[in-house]
Structures are given as C-alpha cells and as structure tokens.
Amino acid sequence: MTRYLKFLLAGLIGLAVWTGATAAETGSAKQKVVYHINGDDPKQQVGALRNIQNHINAVGKDNLDLRVVMHGNGLSLVLLPDALKHTKGFKNANADAQQQAAIDNLKIQGVQFKVCANTVKGRMVNASEDLYDFSEADIVPSGVAELAILQSQGFAYIKP
C-alpha cells in the first residue's frame, strides 16, 4: 500500500512542479501587446506600423501576440481612399498601395487588426467594401472596451 502511495506522491510532485513550470512559461514566453490607434495623421500611422515591425524584429514573431485596435479617426489606417466620398467624419483615408503592403506584411507575421463597430456604424462605413482586407472577425463592439479587456487579460498597452 505504502509503496503505491509513494509512487503516487512522486507523481503528484512531478505534476505540481510541471504545472507550475508550464504556467510560468506560458505566462512569460509569448509577449502580449495591444497597440492603440485613434489618430489619422498619415505620418504617425506610418510611424506606428514601423514601431510594430521594429517590435517584432526585437522580440521575434513567434514570441508575440500583437493586436492593433483602431477606433475613431484611427480607422483611416485601413480606410480605402475611395471610401472618403460616402463615409462621414473622415479627413484622411490612408490605406494606399504602400500602406496596404505594410499591413499585409504585418498580418503575415501574425499581427491582428481590430476595428471598432461603433465607429463603423457612426461614420457610415461599409466595412467589407471600405476597409482594406477586412473580415468579420476583425470587428470588436467597442474599441476602448476591447483595450480594457485585453489589458485585463495581460496585454501591455502601447499608444504609439
């Protein structure tokens, strides 16, 4: 009886140590970061995308879970130039060929781009036609609420 219990004991210790170690590993191995974009200055947006690329270069794409949350004027990052005519409240639509290439490049490296449903609705954006490379999974109910939720899940916050 005791013999089996000792084996069981050893197993349990092993399990506990392993669990602790795995928890520690998953906790720190993948860096979780959310970038907040709500401005429409094209120069700043180019800078932000460059920040993200530099960040990936520094940490490695496999070690990062990186999200970009856009709301308000920030949607101009993925807004196609033709959409300026019929949308409301945008002064800039910055998703020209060059920016599209930069977005593609980041997406290939695993970056997720999220857009705020409030902005889409409030500014008469037809998401599937007006936003570059949009899919339904990219939409979040509220950009700022998403920022808070992600931070509560351990994401670090960056306003570039």
Binding site: L12, I13, L15, A16, V17, T19, G20, A21, A23, A24
Partner: peptide, 8 residues
C-alpha cells in the same frame, strides 16, 4: 501538491 502549485 499544494506547495508545488502555490509555488508555481
């Protein structure tokens, strides 16, 4: 077990 988990 508890020590291991808590420590981890």
């Amino acid at each position: 077990l508890v020590l291991g988990v808590v420590a981890g």
